[in-house]
Nucleic acid binder design. Structure first.
Length: 277
DNA sequence: TCGCAGGTGGTCG
DNA sequence: CGACCACCTGCG
């Protein structure tokens, strides 16, 4: 089995638990040894991190794949230390959240997969979102086999989903989101992937929150600041903004976190969801 | 039984 | 425009 080792990956800037449990990614599972296995970029891959030697081990990748795919996927060229310093100097609450959730990175994920995933995420809970996404892949995605023989499924393409009916999707248990997905698949298979906020918002089932997640995780908009129930709680309890005043929250984030709003959001989300509750 | 979970679209005023 | 409200599904 091919495996590639990345040296000198700073432990203060890389933590698998924090990366995969901050709500950005639904297709990776933790193994007993602490590594994470999942499917991304149409490949089955396992990430292990040795924090003593500051080495990242990527099983299922050779050197070529690392430079072509995973380096970018893991956003390894971005200096998160510098970003954290910039954010910490502006606000002491975000500093605490960043100390707690150190090592979060924003993954550069596939846009179409993000569109599907976050349409499914609405008014839903994380275990069920993960179940729906896996079920969608195993039922309608293309099978892939890794070098060591393990099998998995890619997410179905827009073209594939566009041919389906809500009846076909019944076993996936998407509920009322089925028709959002099919409708969106039709638009994307006809017009191509959205390239702007306006095009994104034209998709059925994509409101402000979902669009904001898609931009952050699938389009590289690091300033995008998704406001979900957890971030609302942070904004309310830690920053004292009135509970449902989304406008003030958005403005506050833009002024305080600016171009790194998305990174701040991930730390705040993780902090609130796993530490403060 | 009922509210809630990483919201959104439709309908009113 | 802003404030409701129904909505699939599964869990506590």
């Amino acid at each position: 089995m091919k495996e590639y080792v990345v040296k000198d990956v700073k432990s203060s800037q890389f933590n698998l638990d924090h990366i995969f449990d901050c709500g950005q990614c639904f297709r990776f599972k933790k193994n007993e040894d602490g590594s994470y296995t999942g499917i991304a970029k149409e490949k089955i891959v396992t990430f292990s991190y040795d924090d003593k030697n500051e080495e990242l081990w990527i099983k299922g990748s050779d050197e070529k794949d690392f430079f072509n795919i995973w380096k970018n996927y893991l956003d390894l060229d971005t200096d998160y230390g510098a970003i954290k310093n910039a954010l910490a100097s502006k606000d002491t609450i975000i500093k605490k959240a960043m100390d707690y959730g150190y090592g979060i990175r924003i993954l550069k994920q596939d846009l179409w997969e993000m569109i599907i995933s976050f349409i499914i995420s609405q008014n839903n809970n994380i275990p069920r979102i993960k179940g729906c996404i896996e079920s969608l892949a195993t039922n309608f995605g293309e099978q892939i086999i890794s070098q060591d023989g393990s099998k998995g499924f890619n997410m179905p393409t827009a073209e594939r989903l566009a041919m389906l009916t809500t009846y076909d999707l019944q076993p996936i248990k998407l509920g009322y989101r089925s028709k959002y997905l099919i409708d969106t698949a039709k638009v994307v298979s006809e017009n191509g992937l959205p390239e702007s906020d306006e095009q994104l918002r034209r998709l059925v089932g994509v409101g402000p929150k979902v669009a904001s997640c898609i931009k952050l995780f699938g389009m590289g908009h690091m300033d995008s600041f998704p406001i979900d129930v957890w971030v609302k709680r942070v904004m309310n309890t830690l920053y004292g903004i009135e509970e449902n005043d989304l406008k003030t929250m958005t403005n506050f984030a833009a002024e305080t976190f600016g171009e790194y709003g998305g990174i701040a959001q991930q730390y705040l989300f993780y902090y609130m969801r796993t530490y403060i509750k």
